[in-house]
Computed example of a mutant assay.
Amino acid sequence: MKFSLLSHPDCFQLPDTTVVNVISPDGEILDTFQNRMSVEGRYGVHSLQLRALHKGRELSVEGSPYAYLYGQNLYTSNDLLAALRELLPQVLDQCVTSPADADVQRWMSGDISLARVDLYVNFPCPEGVTAKRFIRQIARQLIERGVATRTFGNTFVWSPDRGRKYEIVFYAKGPQMRAKRSLKHFPERSRLLREAENIVRVELCLQVEMLRQLGLNNASDWTQETPRKIFGKFMRKLGIVNVTAGSLSNQELVALPSDRLKPVLALHKAGYDLRQIYSPATVQRHLHAFRNLGIDLRCPNQLESEVLPLLKLLSPKRAVRGAPKWMRSNGYAPADCKV
């Protein structure tokens, strides 16, 4: 997450940081910036990055409020404004000077500019399926769409328009947390890692241009229902449906609503490229017909032993609903993050 507090010149000044001046040819100081200051969060696991900009008129804050406040971001909350209100006093304590009460009241009411917001949902892996295999299936289907993607380690990134407005990231939460050295300071690290072990996280990263387009570039624009609605909207953009696997069966042919679709399915499952057989308009018509049946023919037919039913596995009903009681009762997660 990245957000900014705005005020008058010299309102924000950070201690012990390098100052950069923008100077005109005549020697006039046109603008002033302070380099980043890192502020360690609870248990030393996560940090916030603060920077004073534009002669102290703006304080830029980057990092996860929940990770900073609770020492973990496996489980958070839908209440973005409540998290910022809890974080704000600790951020302002880092400044050399105290802002006016009117400014603080304005920020606490939600007048906070949002430059990036990250929303997520955790999905459990089905029994016998690793997070790596789960993500591999997602990548195999989405990579056929012709949209920019990136893959590294146990992470797959869907990046329309090179991520200028938004990205959707799929990654294995367990390996990501195990690799974080600072997590060794978390009081119940082993228990937390067990919670994350078979979790695939789907994270929606909204950039400032998309936030403006959605009318959500100010913290006061968000309610507790906003994250659910926005996440669902962008997941539907992916259009994830099932893919075909194994050899053609009579049962599959009988289930088709039209005889004209039978040769199309037979050719697809035999490994033929439909674009080499049908005209572009006919291919699009067939793709649309099968998509209405919950089948994506853009993805090549797979071995039956490898395919996973993503339409079912990524359904809202399977999402992890909240933090377990032991985390909430010990203050490791927000109290409203309930299962």
Rank of each mutant, 00 (worst) to 15 (best):
L84F: 12
L256P: 11
K317H: 08
G232R: 07
A131N: 00
V264A: 04
L265T: 09
G128H: 01
N301F: 01
V117A: 03
D10H: 13
V283M: 04
D26H: 13
E195H: 07
I29D: 06
R275S: 13
R201S: 01
T282A: 15
K317V: 10
K237G: 04
W158S: 11
F290W: 06
I277L: 14
A323L: 06
I135M: 00
V39I: 15
D296S: 10
V96D: 04
L81C: 05
A52E: 00
V320C: 04
T76Q: 12
Y43A: 05
A266C: 11
N330R: 13
A83G: 14
A179R: 12
V39Q: 06
L211G: 07
T244M: 11
L265D: 08
N301T: 10
S7L: 10
L59E: 03
V202M: 00
S315W: 00
L274Y: 02
R51L: 10
S47F: 00
S77G: 06
Y66D: 13
R291E: 07
D336T: 13
D336G: 05
L142E: 03
E28H: 10
R162S: 13
A323D: 01
L238R: 07
Y68C: 05
T155G: 06
N218K: 14
W158A: 09
G153L: 10
A335T: 15
L53W: 03
A323F: 06
T151G: 14
L50D: 02
V91E: 09
N21G: 09
E225T: 14
L314A: 02
A131Q: 01
K338P: 00
Q137E: 10
Q207W: 01
S113F: 12
R42D: 04
D221C: 11
R201A: 02
G56Q: 07
D16H: 14
S98R: 15
A172F: 06
W158F: 15
D103P: 00
F290Y: 12
E62C: 12
S315H: 08
I168M: 15
A245L: 04
P25E: 07
R162V: 11
Q34P: 10
A115L: 13
G239Y: 02
P9K: 11
L204K: 02
S4A: 15
F231R: 02
F12R: 03
R136G: 13
Q176P: 05
L248E: 06
K233S: 11
I29K: 12
Q34C: 10
K132F: 01
R150H: 12
P257L: 10
G215S: 04
V241P: 02
R116I: 06
G27A: 11
A266N: 05
L274P: 05
N21A: 12
R145F: 09
L88T: 10
D296T: 03
P15I: 10
L313Q: 00
N330C: 09
A289H: 05
G153V: 05
A100S: 14
R291S: 09
R116F: 03
I199V: 14
W326M: 09
I199W: 04
I199K: 01
G322T: 09
G322H: 04
Y171C: 13
I230M: 08
